[in-house]
């Protein structure tokens, strides 16, 4: 194989054969090393979370990638091409200027107007000291009820929008709650305190990707409809109960339901 090793000959055929073999082996090796190197670079430059989210978003069903402007009735049908990141949407201004139509009710759920909402069912509230409080929205809280355990990041840890903010465990289910904004965690809360994280973003954050106003109830309506289908009996026709509000601790009340699928859709897995 190498000069000096028994069987090696300085002949044209031998050198060409081994030269080709080493070229191929080197190409394979370089390709894999390049993939590893680029992966390391992605983590170093903090692009990893955004890439992961883009990949996971691309794998989500089309029905769950519905544009906020479709939810708000501004366009008939539109699938989001920007991984729910309206900050990089070139058409945002055009659609946002159109009148929105949305249900007048919030279905008995508490969605205060002063908060902004992420599609992964978290809310964000700006505080006077420049920090932002993050919590689980009312629909998600009604579903999960009291979690068995919560794994929060340590103060000082950095979170990236659409990356994992914290983890909830309920029964056999583990839920990754997505961060609605970038920032550094300054304080942690919990289910009992009504909020989970307080973060300080670097500079003034652009919150255009978060839902607000009439978009929220329209999105909520769509989410409740999806849950009805996912949690209903497999052979039952979709039906909407008239009146009534979502009970608290739905996971405890319906232990046999397909929570694996429902939680994945709710928390954008």
């Amino acid at each position: 194989m190498f000069p000096g090793v028994d069987g090696f000959h300085w002949t044209f055929g031998h050198v060409v054969f081994l030269g080709l073999f080493f070229a191929v082996a080197l190409t394979i090796f370089t390709t894999v090393v390049r993939a590893v190197w680029r992966s390391v670079e992605d983590f170093r430059s903090r692009r990893a979370t955004a890439i992961c989210w883009d990949l996971e978003f691309a794998g989500m069903p089309e029905a769950e990638r519905c544009c906020r402007h479709e939810l708000a009735g501004r366009v008939a049908e539109r699938t989001c091409p920007n991984s729910f990141d309206c900050r990089r949407c070139a058409e945002y201004e055009k659609f946002a200027a159109l009148p929105a139509s949305s249900p007048a009710t919030s279905f008995g759920l508490d969605y205060p107007a002063g908060r902004l909402y992420h599609r992964g069912h978290t809310w964000v509230r700006p505080e006077s000291d420049g920090t932002y409080t993050i919590g689980l929205d009312d629909l998600a809280s009604h579903l999960v009820g009291k979690p068995d355990s919560v794994e929060l990041p340590e103060p000082g840890a950095a979170i990236d929008a659409n990356g994992t903010a914290w983890t909830l465990r309920k029964g056999r289910n583990e839920v990754r709650v997505r961060a609605p904004i970038d920032g550094t965690v300054v304080e942690t809360g919990g289910a009992d305190r009504g909020w989970y994280l307080r973060v300080r973003p670097e500079g003034e954050p652009n919150l255009r990707h978060l839902l607000q106003g009439p978009e929220v109830t329209a999105w909520l309506s769509k989410e409740l409809e999806r849950l009805q289908i996912q949690l209903g009996a497999p052979d039952a026709a979709p039906s909407l109960a008239d009146g009534g509000i979502l009970m608290d601790g739905l996971m405890d009340a319906m232990p046999q339901a397909d929570w694996d699928n429902a939680l994945a859709s709710t928390f954008l897995e």
């Binding site: 993939a35 992966s39 992605d42 990893a48």
Partner: peptide, 8 residues
């Protein structure tokens, strides 16, 4: 890290 390596 798996997802990023898979992508790359």
């Amino acid at each position: 890290s798996f997802l990023i390596f898979e992508h790359r």
